[in-house]
């Protein structure tokens, strides 16, 4: 996946990971990689500007704590962050469903042209898809 595309959604993804519970940067990037099946393989440092940005926006709170014998800064969602994560999730779902319909429509159009010889808009989409 393109890193630019990934970066554009990083804030939302970080919020989504934090909905499962507080985490430090290392754990967060690990969870991100695991939950994406290895598709999101960003430079690990890129999660920190996102975390600081979200904290500044009041969506995330943080504090130092000892985790497994190491001093780490642990991030957790605020109430506003939880709301924002939910909003982003529903926005993303409607957006991805629309994209899916467009891409899926292209394939369906192509199939329609191939099988029934339909002309008009569907045919045009099929031609573009082909």
């Amino acid at each position: 996946m393109s890193q630019d595309m990934m970066r554009g959604h990083l804030d939302g993804l970080v919020l989504a990971v934090l909905t499962t519970g507080p985490s430090h940067g290392y754990g967060l990037i690990d969870a991100l990689r695991d939950r994406s099946g290895g598709a999101f393989d960003l430079p690990e440092g890129s999660v920190y500007p996102a975390l600081h940005r979200l904290e500044r926006a009041g969506l995330v709170a943080s504090g130092w704590s000892e985790v497994a014998g190491r001093r780490r800064r642990v991030y957790s969602l605020t109430a506003a962050g939880r709301r924002s994560a939910e909003e982003r999730r529903s926005e993303w779902r409607s957006f991805s469903a629309a994209v899916e319909r467009v891409f899926g429509g292209g394939e369906a159009g192509g199939a329609a042209v191939g099988t029934t010889g339909t002309t008009g808009t569907t045919g045009a989409v099929g031609a573009v898809g082909a």
Partner: peptide, 20 residues
Amino acid sequence: ARFGAPEELAGEFNRDCALH
């Protein structure tokens, strides 16, 4: 190397901080 180039990381922090 896994963490990323410091100039890119610093650039992003600097940009966010400047905007704030």
